[in-house]
């Protein structure tokens, strides 16, 4: 569900009974998104397109959903990845299902390729922005047809382009610089996956809405494969992660997180919560207190 707000239009007296205006006044528009997905990253490689995205669905800053598939096959030759409003993405998938179905009903052996689907999406997104009623997404469309690789993007307001590698949202800031350094035309499947995983790992560390459950999809002349969800290996052992407040030590969290569960007990215990994943710094005084 998208957050909708009715626009109250100042109706002047002469137009009060105009049903057209009244219906416009009642119209509902997306002013901001509800449940959102974060970055999608995609690249061309030797045999086709590779696309990666995590499976998080954020409700503001709450991680509300953790198994949202944000990469879907479209028709025989295309792969669609979406960030932004999840419900709008699902609406777009319904439009595309209809598009592919009606195209298939011609029964002429022709089928829409990635270029056509991308063009269609471009028109849908731009048309909705013209009505001031946008579909709140950044979309990535990749595919292969007749030996031609295709990789393009469309934004919420209809801005669209093709490139050898693309990324939405935070991916634009964090993944594309890596891709510009390391991408090349002849990437093998293995190297392509490695490159995407490198990007997704950086996003996982630095994008707070990214989660460690992702899918990578591949499309070649042979067809589409979307991987099962999996996790990346991470390393949080850097000293900056271990003890982020060193040099800026406060006092409150020692009090909050180290409690004396039983007044008779002299030894301080960690509370039975999972909160203090980060160990407090041991000042000599505190250490003495703890060991007493």
């Amino acid at each position: 569900m998208t957050r909708k707000t009715s626009l109250t239009m100042e109706s002047n007296q002469s137009n009060q009974h105009n049903s057209l205006l009244a219906s416009e006044a009642d119209s509902q528009r997306t002013l901001y998104p509800y449940v959102t997905g974060t970055s999608v990253v995609a690249i061309k490689y030797k045999d086709g397109i590779l696309m990666a995205s995590d499976m998080g669905g954020s409700y503001g800053s709450t991680l509300r959903y953790k198994s949202v598939e944000r990469i879907k096959p479209v028709g025989k030759h295309s792969l669609l990845g979406a960030s932004g409003e999840i419900s709008d993405f699902q609406e777009i998938l319904r439009y595309l299902d209809e598009l592919i179905l009606y195209d298939n009903m011609w029964d002429d052996g022709n089928s829409l390729g990635p270029k056509e689907v991308h063009s269609y999406l471009t028109r849908v997104m731009y048309n909705r922005r013209n009505k001031f009623n946008p579909l709140w997404n950044s979309l990535i469309l990749g595919g292969v047809k007749n030996g031609h690789k295709y990789l393009g993007m469309v934004s919420m307001i209809g801005v669209n382009f093709e490139d050898d590698h693309v990324a939405t949202g935070f991916g634009n800031h964090l993944a594309r610089p890596i891709l510009r350094d390391e991408w090349h035309e002849n990437l093998s499947f293995e190297d392509g996956v490695k490159l995407l995983e490198k990007c997704m790992r950086v996003l996982l560390y630095r994008d707070r809405s990214a989660i460690n459950k992702l899918q990578i999809a591949k499309i070649t002349e042979e067809g589409v494969t979307v991987s099962q969800p999996y996790s990346l290996k991470t390393f949080w052992g850097f000293s900056a992660f271990q003890n982020p407040t060193v040099g800026a030590e406060g006092s409150w969290w020692v009090v909050v997180r180290w409690v004396r569960p039983n007044p008779d007990q002299k030894k301080l215990r960690r509370p039975p919560l999972l909160l203090p994943l980060i160990l407090p710094p041991r000042s000599p005084q505190l250490a003495a207190n703890l060991d007493a």
Binding site: Y32, Y59, R129
Partner: peptide, 15 residues
């Protein structure tokens, strides 16, 4: 939930 984005604009400048 409070609004997090700036007001939506139908325009962008792509330079």
């Amino acid at each position: 939930m409070t609004k997090q984005q700036a007001n939506w604009s139908p325009y962008d400048n792509n330079g």
